[in-house]
Design a protein around this nucleic acid. Structure first.
Lengths: 227, 227
DNA sequence: TTGATAATATAATAATACAATATGAATGAT
DNA sequence: ATCATTCATATTGTATTATTATATTATCAA
């Protein structure tokens, strides 16, 4: 983390950074104990209030937990926490959807190259996709359909086995949930796109990379409509 | 945000929730002013410390900003925040270099499609790249070379004008700096690759997308060696 | 008008005190 | 000896108060 060089406004952010560094440098894992608030205060030479502000902020992100007597412990870093907040964020400001869409296309199109290899070696992957698609078909309402659609796209990235991509994709999904909802409001008939999903994975199964990539592009460009 | 029903451990989380609600209910937009810390303290009937912990945490997430005299204001979406968090995530779970490399390839290869369009419309971009490459050539030592190499790759992504990609790329750069240093230790002659850069941007200028993509793949796969 | 300067509002930090609570040890009952 | 209970203690949680830093606004002089 090259956070040190960057200008930092206030102490608590600085401290939060240092606490993160502390975790990394001591290679603490989830559940491990950190120094107490008081010890941190002494270690960094700041008041306990500042330590609290920092730990609170980190706590919000799930980076650490705190409890009386137990003290501070390293939390589980998961995307859900952050996406929850981002979701709020994005409710306030609308980020240019076109850029998000392009980002997503790049990720998915890029992932396909890996997915196609993995699928060739492991037929199980194909049937997993079939499973998800069948849940798409049997969805009772739009909300359920959206959930399964998101699941499908996540599975696609996951199948590439490149976890940084998965993490990034999870973040983007926050935006896309909104898009999906908007789209469905407009186009009413939400089941229309099931075949599109099937075409993609069939192309992958048959080793037709460029075709699959083209299909994904087409599929994703549906989100463009609601302008 | 249906946060109200959920069990909440401590006051500051509760307060943070209420502040979020406040923003929504008054439909505040980015840059709008919130009550002062003191007013919030009175409004919610808690101490100012609690308000601070909450606002700090929200500030940390970019949901609001604070400055003396100006007070609290609603923040704007900042991809940097997101990636900062992701960066921590990556640091904790040390992803194998191979996956990071693949991620990077996907980003850059994907970005090229946009870059090529932008370049066709704006010749200035090409000469900017030429400038960076010439600094590569005149680098005096390995460290300087690395800096300019990173600059080149960043400029490549930046030229796509897709900021989420840029943010994500910056994040990966932390790791790649390490890679680069390792590589250079091994291969000694660090100026060897300048022509590779030139080929890439020339291909882009000539509108040869697939060729440029192939060149990038080749270029990046240099990092694979130091296994 | 312009530029500097002072006043003021507000966040930033600190010190301190006490309350609440989970943990683990000590105690006691069976 | 084993299990449950109690209790002391460490640590976070909350509150109060004071001081400092800083950005905005108002004032005044050139």
């Amino acid at each position: 983390m090259n956070d040190k060089t960057v200008k930092r406004k206030n102490l608590s952010e600085e401290v939060a950074s240092r606490i993160k560094s502390y975790i990394i440098e001591n290679s603490l894992r989830m559940g491990d104990r950190l120094p107490t608030e008081f010890e941190f205060a002494e270690l960094f030479g700041v008041s306990r209030v500042i330590i609290r502000e920092a730990t609170k902020a980190l706590g919000f992100l799930g980076i650490l937990n705190s409890a009386p007597k137990r003290g501070l412990t390293v939390g589980e870093v998961d995307m859900k926490r952050v996406t929850q907040y981002l979701g709020f964020h994005f409710a306030l400001n609308d980020y240019p959807r076109e850029k998000l869409l392009k980002t997503r296309m790049i990720l998915e199109v890029g992932a396909l190259g890996e997915v196609i290899e993995k699928m060739a070696r492991d037929p199980e992957i194909y049937s997993r996709f079939r499973g998800i698609i069948s849940t798409l078909e049997t969805s009772r309402d739009a909300d359920e359909f959206i959930r399964h659609d998101m699941e499908f796209h996540r599975a696609l990235i996951e199948a590439s086995d490149i976890d940084p991509l998965v993490a990034f994709n999870d973040l983007l999904d926050v935006f896309f949930r909104r898009f999906r909802e908007e789209i469905l409001e407009v186009q009413g008939d939400w089941k229309v796109n099931v075949q599109g999903h099937r075409n993609i994975i069939d192309a992958l199964r048959d080793g037709k990379l460029t075709e699959a990539q083209e299909l994904i592009r087409l599929h994703l460009s549906n989100y463009k409509k609601a302008d």
